[in-house]
């Protein structure tokens, strides 16, 4: 998905993210999705605002809560649902599931189940672009919880000393699963990044316009050889940490906290700004919403109608170069 400065397109993308996640949650509840799903609902402005500042050939790495980043970078809902449903037509041929969706043609170097693990890989990709003389940038997404992960802090240093075109995108939703950042993080998050020599900025992550403006500035600077930057996006996750067949995790946050977050809803906020400002395309907001509903239902249908991987392919794709009798199956008769 290409760069966009069009608020209606941003709305369309944010709506797509939200409806995708709501539909995914239903499919988890129905048992059609086997495995945990980490809903991105509430954080849509971050993925959409950041990715709208990126070119198709720029690269992102994502997190366990990755559906939003992947959709915002251009991921197709049909192949994503197919992956969640464990189908051969999924992005990863049903080998990865929710936490590992990738599409290298779209610059999506993969969601990741290990907190902070994508950041050094984004640095390595950015180094490759730099030595090849390409003006591409890399954006690792990660959460506030990752700010306590050593490999992320090491990556800050690496990006600074190698002057890499990396924009570190920190989604601060306030919680590492159930643990509040107030109890888990010493000092201030953005000041911590500054300590590594990264230009750091804290941005309202519920305001897609602010997210895009900060991201576009950091991307432009990195593209021109100005080096890495750190952006903190203050956002809110509406749902529990994750959901899975068999139930939702218990949420330890108060109703009041959750209600306050929903009052800042990024989609309603942007919709209001469009109504008050440049206005909608013909058909208005409803036309966009209807378009997204059709897209999401079509995507679920595609996934349901796709075959599952055949059992005899269970050992496939681990290695590019294979040898006789390798990799080994679990038994010999």
């Amino acid at each position: 998905m290409s760069e966009s400065r069009d608020p209606v397109e941003w709305y369309r993308r944010m709506r797509r993210l939200r409806r995708f996640e709501m539909r995914a949650a239903e499919l988890v509840g129905d048992g059609e999705i086997n495995g945990p799903v980490h809903e991105y609902i509430g954080e849509e402005a971050v993925a959409v605002g950041v990715c709208a500042a990126l070119r198709a050939d720029d690269v992102i790495t994502s997190t366990h809560r990755g559906h939003g980043h992947i959709l915002a970078k251009g991921g197709a809902p049909d192949r994503m649902f197919a992956e969640l449903l464990g189908r051969e037509s999924g992005y990863n041929r049903g080998r990865g599931g929710s936490m590992h969706i990738a599409d290298f043609d779209l610059g999506i170097y993969g969601a990741n189940g290990i907190v902070g693990a994508g950041a050094p890989m984004a640095c390595g990709a950015a180094f490759t672009f730099k030595v090849r003389g390409e003006d591409r940038v890399a954006v690792p997404f990660f959460g506030d919880g990752a700010m306590n992960q050593g490999v992320l802090l090491e990556s800050f240093n690496l990006a600074v000393i190698l002057h890499l075109p990396v924009i570190f995108a920190c989604e601060n939703n306030g919680y590492a699963i159930t643990s509040s950042i107030r109890e888990m993080l010493g000092g201030d998050l953005a000041r911590r990044a500054e300590g590594f020599g990264l230009p750091a900025q804290s941005v309202d992550g519920m305001d897609v316009c602010a997210v895009h403006a900060a991201s576009a500035a950091a991307v432009e600077r990195a593209r021109a050889g100005g080096g890495p930057a750190f952006l903190e996006f203050r956002t809110a996750r509406y749902s529990v940490h994750n959901i899975a067949t068999g139930g939702r995790m218990r949420d330890n946050r108060s109703e009041e906290t959750l209600a306050q977050a929903r009052e800042r809803d990024p989609i309603e906020r942007l919709a209001g700004e469009i109504t008050r400002g440049a206005g909608w395309e013909p058909g208005g907001r409803d036309a966009v919403d209807d378009e997204i509903e059709r897209e999401i239902e079509g995507a679920v249908g595609f996934a349901r109608n796709s075959p599952r991987p055949r059992a005899e392919t269970a050992l496939d794709y681990m290695y590019a170069d294979t040898y006789p009798d390798f990799p080994a199956p679990g038994w010999e008769h």
């Binding site: 050094p120 890989m121 240093n157």
Partner: peptide
């Protein structure tokens, strides 16, 4: 730098690229 985790991940990312 003495950051084995990050420079190994850096190599993984460069390999993916």
């Amino acid at each position: 730098p003495i950051s084995e985790a990050a420079f190994t991940g850096f190599a993984n990312g460069a390999a993916l690229a």
